[in-house]
């Protein structure tokens, strides 16, 4: 039997690793991967509760999360490609047009 608290601990660890990755890495691609990590930890929580509550509704949402992640990855990577075309770089520090 897997303890719920252990599952939640694992999910929290993955989430915080995602957060830290997003904050410290300058490569947009790796920042994106960090986002995927965070989404994954959310899916893990959903599935864990699905198991512990004996209901399948959270799994539906886990599927939705995965679909959302796919959509987000598609658009995000498209943006990266478009950005790279213009700037020849994936360094987030060089993309500062939001200032002004």
């Amino acid at each position: 039997m897997i303890e719920l608290s252990e599952l939640l601990l694992l999910s929290a660890v993955l989430f915080v690793l995602g957060v830290v990755g997003f904050i410290i890495r300058r490569n947009i691609l790796i920042m994106f991967m960090s986002v995927e990590l965070m989404l994954n930890s959310a899916g893990l929580v959903l599935v864990a509760f699905s198991n512990k509550l004996g209901t399948m509704d959270p799994q539906v949402f886990a599927v939705f999360v995965i679909a959302l992640a796919a959509a987000e990855a598609a658009v995000g990577l498209a943006i990266i490609v478009a950005l790279f075309r213009g700037r020849e770089s994936v360094n987030i520090d060089e993309m500062r047009l939001l200032k002004w």
Binding site: V19, I23, I92, M95, K99
Partner: peptide
């Protein structure tokens, strides 16, 4: 704070 660095914004979000 509004320095254009996306990660600084992410930190404020956090």
């Amino acid at each position: 704070l509004q320095n254009g660095y996306a990660q600084v914004y992410a930190i404020s979000f956090l």
